[in-house]
Structures are given as structure tokens and as C-alpha cells.
Design a protein around this nucleic acid. Structure first.
Lengths: 177, 177
DNA sequence: AGACCATACCTCGACACCGATGTATAGCGT
DNA sequence: ACGCTATACATCGGTGTCGAGGTATGGTCT
């Protein structure tokens, strides 16, 4: 998820770590903050894998900056991760939102549609958080107001997302034809 | 999050690891599956911390079971984690839903209300995923259909949750008086 | 002059998590 | 008899993440 965000931001323009950090904080920081001690090793990992290169520039304000840019391999890897996400990226909202934030980098509308359809299939599966045996329980069947809240909120999210998915898929299919 | 779920389920009734695993899978598994190799060490951690004890029983079907039950310390710890969650438990939906699933174990409506109000404060902060400088962008201002989707879905979730929070807080305040 | 904060990057130890793999019993279908 | 699945628990190596701490520069406030 973090690596995807790094690759995604660098796809648009070269950035140095400090700015990259603020970009990532804006994107997902209010939900799940990213520590510096997580970001810098992640950058090194990607550099070691040849997905990005760094160019040292004299610091505009303070210490020297390492400006990071994607290599061709990095661009390919980003597109690969966007086109063939692991199942976790589809099901976990945090991962999924990060993926959506960069899905436009997948130039082909048909490839974008494939990804959206995987999310659609996941949302269309009948699944709850609470069960009676194997039967998923509806919000109305629960006494617990907090568990009822979970289901109410999840249902509202699901409804909104399904509507958006169907809309967007229709216009992607239109564009592909 | 995992530990909270373990403590939460055991608060209702003693269970052995295998059943516990299925309970957890039902609760959060469709979004974020939990590996056995994560669950068993987590159980050991909690046991070592004195939060639960195990009693070996001959297996009803196969291998012997280790039936886990909460200690008094375990119950106290669960209530402490429910009453004073870390900020991450408030902001990250995965964590938050797990917390909500067990919040009823906090017997005091006033204490439950305190937790809900923290989530309310978080949701009422103006925050987006995308910014122009410091200004949060609205869905309508984005060209990218996928980013627009993120905001559309997040807004629907937020709306539904705010309504539910205000409702539930009102009835908790009524019960507390 | 000193305190403080923002910029900019980095290391280290601790630890939670995961996939792969292993062990053992019992039941079902072929 | 054989394979497969479900029950039931466990270990191990690799790795991603975090908190705490460190280094250095330059600007603002008092």
C-alpha cells in the first residue's frame, strides 16, 4: 500500500522524500499515518529493486534533497500492481482507496474496468460481519446498537460504492468501444 | 485489533483457538483475513500477559483442544482498551468496526458515549484525500473519475455514520440520565 | 544569545504479521 | 486402500512497521 503510493506519486513527477511524505500524509494520513521510519526504508527498497533512482540536489531550505524519479521498470511495476492487485487490495478499503487514487495511471479503460469489476464482484457477495450459524444477520436482527451501527454504515457504503461502480463501468465501457 | 477481537469474543464465553479463528474470520475475514500463524502467537502473548488461561480438553473431533478463558485481568484489559482506544482505533475503519463490535462490553452508557464522541469529532474535522495546497478538494472539482469515486464513497459513509452516531448518542444520553 | 520549529534525512531494536510447513486424528467418497 | 477435507495446534524465517532517537541547516520569536 505504501509502495503503491510512492510509485503512484512519482509517476506524475519526481519528488524528494520529505514532500512525498506530505503527499502520502494528505492521502491516507488522517486514517493511517505513515512514520518516517517506514517511508525511508520503503524508498530504499524500491531503489534497490531498480524501480526508482535518486539525484542529490542542494537543499533549497535546509539539508540536501534526494530527488526521486521512477525508472521505466518502476512505471511498469506500478502499472502491473494497478492492473493485477492482490485480493487484499480489493477487499480492504484502505488499500482499495489507495489503488483508486492512482488507477488513472492505467491508461487502458478496459484494464481499469477489469479492476473495478473485481471490486464489484467482492461487494456483490453476500457478506456480513455477524452470523447466526452460516446465515448473515441483517442490522434489524441485532439488539446491540453498536453492531447495528456497523451494519448500517457498511450497507450505506456498499450502496454508494455499487452505484458509483456501475456508473463508472458504464462510461468506461462506452469509452472502450 | 486482533488482540481486541480475541479478548472480545472470550468475554462472552470460553472458546478454543479453532473456533475463535472462525469467529474472527466471520467478523473481519472478508476484508482482512487472519492467518493461523498470526492467531496462535497472539493467543500465547495474551496468555503470557496473564489475560487468559488455557485448559486442555480431549478433542471432540480430532486433536485435543485448548479452551481459552479470560482472566479478571483480561476482562479489565478489554474494558480498558474499549474505553481508551488509541487514535488509530478511532480513525481506521477496520479497527473502528472491531471496536464497535465489542463496545457493548463496556457496561456504562456514559463511557460508551465518550468513545462515540471521539469518532464524531474525527468525522467532523474537514478532511479530504486530495488537496490543492491546503484546501481540501470536493468530488466535483476532480477530473479523475476514480478519485471522484473515493470522495463520493467516503462522503456517503461519513453521512451515514454521522447520522447513526448522533442517533445513538442521543439514546445513550437518554439512558444515562 | 538562546529557544524553538520546520526542513531533510537516517539508524536501530523490538515486534507483529505472513506464508510455508509440519504433526496428528477422524470422517467421507471412490 | 487411497486421497481429500475438516479439525486442532504449532514453529520458523523473512519482512514490513513503528517508536525513539540522532544529525544538520536555517529561520523566527523573545
Amino acid at each position: 500500500m505504501l509502495e503503491l503510493a510512492i510509485l503512484g506519486f512519482l509517476y506524475d513527477a519526481p519528488l524528494h522524500g520529505y514532500v512525498l511524505r506530505r503527499h502520502i500524509a494528505a492521502l491516507t494520513g488522517h486514517v493511517r499515518p505513515v512514520a518516517e521510519s517506514t517511508l525511508y526504508p520503503a524508498i530504499k527498497r524500491l531503489e534497490k529493486a531498480g524501480l526508482l533512482v535518486r539525484a542529490t540536489e542542494p537543499g533549497a531550505v535546509a539539508a540536501p534533497r534526494h530527488v526521486l524519479s521512477l525508472t521505466e521498470d518502476g512505471g511498469r511495476e506500478l502499472r502491473r500492481r494497478l492492473a493485477e492487485p492482490a485480493q487484499r487490495e480489493i477487499t480492504d478499503e484502505n488499500h482499495w482507496f489507495t489503488l483508486l487514487a492512482f488507477l488513472r495511471h492505467l491508461a487502458d479503460p478496459a484494464a481499469q474496468a477489469v479492476v473495478l469489476r473485481r471490486r464489484l464482484a467482492f461487494l456483490e457477495e453476500p457478506a456480513s460481519f455477524f452470523y447466526e450459524g452460516d446465515r448473515p444477520l441483517a442490522a434489524e436482527e441485532l439488539d446491540d446498537p453498536f453492531r447495528r451501527g456497523v451494519l448500517t454504515i457498511a450497507r450505506a457504503t456498499s450502496r454508494a460504492e455499487l452505484a458509483w461502480l456501475r456508473d463508472t463501468l458504464a462510461s468506461l465501457d462506452g469509452a472502450g468501444r
